[in-house]
Amino acid sequence: MPGIEKTAPRRALSAGRSSKMGLPGPAFALILIAPCLLLSVAVIGYPIFDVIRMSLFDVSRTGVVREFSGLANFAKAFADPVFLQAARQTVIWTVCVVAGTLLVSVPIALILNEDFYGRTIARTIVLLPWAISLAMTAVVWRYVVNGDFGTLNMTLAALGLPFENYPWLADARMAFLIEILIGILVSVPFTVTILLGGLTSIPESLYEASAIDGAASTRSFYYITLPLLWPFMQIALVLNVIYVFNSFPIIWIMTNGGPANRTDILITYVYKQAFAFGKLGNAAAGSMVMFAILLVFAIVYLFLTRAQGAKNDD
């Protein structure tokens, strides 16, 4: 890697000649990349800057940035019991959904990697939740678990179970649990996809070799499948942490953070602060906290993929 950095300027120099030759040089490459970069910097880069600014300044309800206030917004946020509660709940939410997702996804991926009748159909059904808007999923589930008219109680009652009018979302613990289960449900397709990609990349000959070497199938699972699948699991883990941490529609639509903020997570807290209460400085401070956490995850992800890439190069 350091070697490439050293040689880079000279490379650019020799490539500079080529523009005359009809092989476009780096300038032309930059022109091709420019629109993409411009769009990204304008729409993502500028808001980042704006949010950082708002988090450090006193901001009026209408969004007028007044004087510099240092870390006052952060102090206010950290003094807000709802913020702290939301932060705690974010940890529970992220850990439970990600752990649950991996726990469910690994066996499903292993099964879907087997050769059986109707595998394509099974794969399609497993991936189905990915195709549907999280917002719509949340709406449908909100109806499914509706106490009075929902299809869940209807089915349970038909099976003779005493859930005639059980209001699933009225109790905060139960509501949060249901949201976590739905979070798992919608994260499984993406995770299974990554794991299946990993499984299909394991050459069949490895299993044949280990079978010839006399390994039983449970042993070849421990000595071949698991180690080779591990990097994919790591990546699925980190990406899921990022996605779940960021996930907004399920909680927003099903319970709106309620009852009594007991299902709020940071992202719904930030949204409420900004668009319901008009506390833009507070919202910006909350956003910055989230942004910092996300950056750490992103760097972990980069580190993981680079390490993996380096291994693949050997």
Binding site: S14, A15, R17, M21, G22, L23
Partner: peptide, 25 residues
């Protein structure tokens, strides 16, 4: 062929130096 750049020296086809001519021509 013109698919790689030349760091130094000349390539001539029929006496014509083609260093700066693309593969197309």
């Amino acid at each position: 062929a013109g698919l790689e750049t030349i760091s130094a020296g000349t390539i001539a086809i029929d006496g014509e130096v083609v260093n700066d001519i693309g593969p197309q021509r």
